[in-house]
């Protein structure tokens, strides 16, 4: 096996001085990555799955030479990320900030031509490459318009095309579909698969479990800066000894009622894991919040028992669904939380 990424005991600590009064300053340390080690083999799609604030972007930035680790070693294509950044940058590419990584005052074509020059691609060769990418990613309708007139999906496509200009052996995609509508996201997933079929190794971070499940040959679950588990999506799901979970939406629940309800559900013999998250809809008004409860069961379930508990606690059910076991359940069983939870304040 040929690892394209080798990570050995990587640590990243952010140090920030915070003002306390007029003259005093306090040093705050945030451990974003905690002793991480794993390898990524050539030719696969590798997903780093974790909630917001887990440390995914920090790791991707270390691997793309934009950040230096506090401790540990990482090698990309055999080159050290700290000492041989220049050599690494020639052979990789990345899409980290999506639509913000391109110049809005330029046209899509001008952007691609400019970035091609940064990869030492002569103008004539760049033109041929851009034409091919335009065909592949269907850019022709808008490539000659200024980026500021594009939709989110179009901006994404140009940013994605930019990251393919140097025919990278390894490409890093940070939350590639986060800002896209479902149709555009589906299109992007198809492109990622196609790219991988052509031999490019893909390292992507996401907090979308379906995306990780659909695309990945291997998944690493990252939480609070630590790798919880690494395996294929199938093996990870097999660790949960059941095939389904129950997702229940209820209106926003106050803390005390929530604790009581969760403790009641936990007491049911067939419940193995339970987690909840507050989901904000629309413009984020409190009235529009709802609570999502996810229950993973270990054996044959009795749905009426669960419904009765909600009735007993006077909490109306908005919807109840049985879902196939997903990576969300794997994350839940390992951490006791849902992927949608923002953990940036916990780190």
């Amino acid at each position: 096996m040929n690892p394209v990424i080798e990570i050995e005991n990587i640590e990243k600590i952010y140090r920030k001085k915070s003002r306390k009064g007029l003259f005093k300053r306090e040093l705050i340390e945030v451990r974003a990555l905690d002793n991480i080690s794993f390898n990524v083999e050539e030719g696969i799609i590798f997903s780093l799955l974790g909630p917001n604030g887990a440390g995914k972007t920090t790791l991707i930035k270390i691997l793309t030479t934009l950040l230096l680790p506090t401790a540990g070693k990482a090698r990309i294509l055999g080159y050290d990320v700290v000492k041989e950044g220049g050599k690494i940058r020639k052979h990789i590419n990345a899409m980290l900030m999506g639509e913000r990584s391109i110049y809005w005052k330029l046209t899509g074509y001008q952007n691609l031509e400019y970035f091609a020059s940064l990869y030492h691609i002569p103008r004539k060769v760049a033109k041929v490459k851009i034409d091919k990418l335009s065909e592949k990613l269907d850019l022709s309708d808008f490539i000659n318009r200024k980026v500021e007139t594009y939709s989110s999906g179009q901006k994404f496509k140009i940013a994605f095309a930019k990251s393919l200009l140097n025919d990278p052996k390894l490409i890093f995609l940070d939350e590639p579909t986060a800002t896209l509508d479902p149709r555009a996201a589906r299109e992007v997933r198809e492109i990622i698969k196609q790219l991988n079929d052509e031999g490019t190794t893909i390292f992507l971070t996401t907090h979308n479990m379906n995306e990780a499940d659909e695309l990945s040959d291997e998944v690493a679950i990252l939480d609070l800066g630590k790798i919880i588990e690494i395996d294929t999506p199938e093996n990870l799901k097999e660790q949960i000894h059941t095939s389904e979970s129950i997702v229940i939406d209820v209106p926003f629940i106050e803390l005390r009622s929530k604790d009581k309800l969760l403790s009641d559900i936990r007491s049911l013999s067939f419940v193995s894991d339970i987690a909840y998250s507050q989901v904000v809809n629309g413009n984020g008004n409190k009235g529009e919040e709802k609570t999502k409860i996810r229950i993973t069961t270990s054996k044959e379930i009795n749905l009426s028992n669960i419904v009765n508990l909600f009735e007993k606690n006077s909490i109306p059910i908005l919807s109840i669904n049985q879902e196939k076991i997903s990576l969300e359940d794997v994350f839940l069983s390992k951490t006791g939380r849902l992927l949608s939870e923002d953990t940036s304040k916990r780190v």
Binding site: G86, L96, Y103, F115, H120, K162
Partner: peptide, 10 residues
């Protein structure tokens, strides 16, 4: 765009 610029081999 600074990160994109500095991530290139230029």
């Amino acid at each position: 765009t600074l990160e994109t610029l500095l991530m290139s081999p230029a």
